[in-house]
Write a protein that binds this DNA or RNA. Structure first.
Lengths: 146, 146
DNA sequence: CAGGATCCAGTAGGATACTG
DNA sequence: CAGTATCCTACTGGATCCTG
């Protein structure tokens, strides 16, 4: 199944699925991945560098559950677990359990996950890079409508 | 031109803002743009072609409110209006009112909006392109945990 | 046509407590 | 450590009615 049909299937899929249609499964998938925590989890697991800022600093490596919860400041354990389960089910992250005591669990991106992470990282970077501009626009809008 | 918040600040912004921090404004912005309807509205206004499939078909042009609601199948008028207002306030879309009777309102992407749309289009395309793979992963996961 | 205003159900998501 | 289970609230978002 996973063979050279990669690019061929990709092209066919683009014609099959259309997120503009309410009933299309891709609409649900879009809804899933359009999530703050999904973006941040992927970013954390993928290393936060724009491309390869410092190959040493935050290189993509498996992260422990506790590392993730520390990295994603403010995330509740419920949302973190829920997000991780969802990503695991969709095959975007792989979960590794080492039966030490207490157990050691780590997460890392799959190939599929990395392909999405590359896109989501850009979105996260966009948000950080254009924050000032957006803030200024909001002020202008609010002043205009006040 | 010693403006502290002009272009120099943009570069610094990448270092200033960090969506991993709960209190950072960019976290809120990330939350805003990580929205199904935002993605779809931007895609609709930007033309849905992957890059330039048919320069004639769905070229980026201003869209009427009713055109948008038809394009985004299943969107409620509340969500559409709310999304458009939010995008307008953030300076991602421009709203044009022509005082005919009844009024004619159209929306188009701003420069800033186009910069984000380019990223979000990739995300939407990703969802459509990898739908089959994700679906297969879900089946495998569900079978495994059943 | 392009919304504004309400009402209301569903659920996302936080806080807390417990467990292998 | 890495969760699961439960409770509970607040907000999301759809449906409906109304207007310039």
């Amino acid at each position: 199944m996973p063979t050279p049909s990669a690019s061929a299937a990709r092209d066919a899929a683009k014609l099959e699925y259309d997120a503009f249609l309410a009933a299309c499964p891709s609409r649900q998938l879009l809804d899933r991945i359009s999530d703050k925590w999904v973006t941040l989890v992927l970013a954390a697991l993928g290393g936060d560098g724009p491309v390869a800022r410092q190959p040493v600093s935050t290189a993509p490596r498996p992260l422990r559950y506790s590392e993730l919860s520390r990295r994603l400041a403010g995330v509740s354990q419920k949302m973190l677990t829920q997000t991780l389960r969802s990503l695991e089910r969709d095959g975007l992250v792989a979960r590794h359990v080492v039966p030490t005591v207490p157990v050691t669990v780590s997460y890392e991106l799959t190939e599929l996950g990395r392909s999405l992470q590359a896109l989501m990282r850009d979105v996260k970077d966009w948000a950080e890079a254009h924050m000032d501009e957006v803030l200024a626009n909001r002020d202008a809008y609010d002043a205009r409508t006040a």
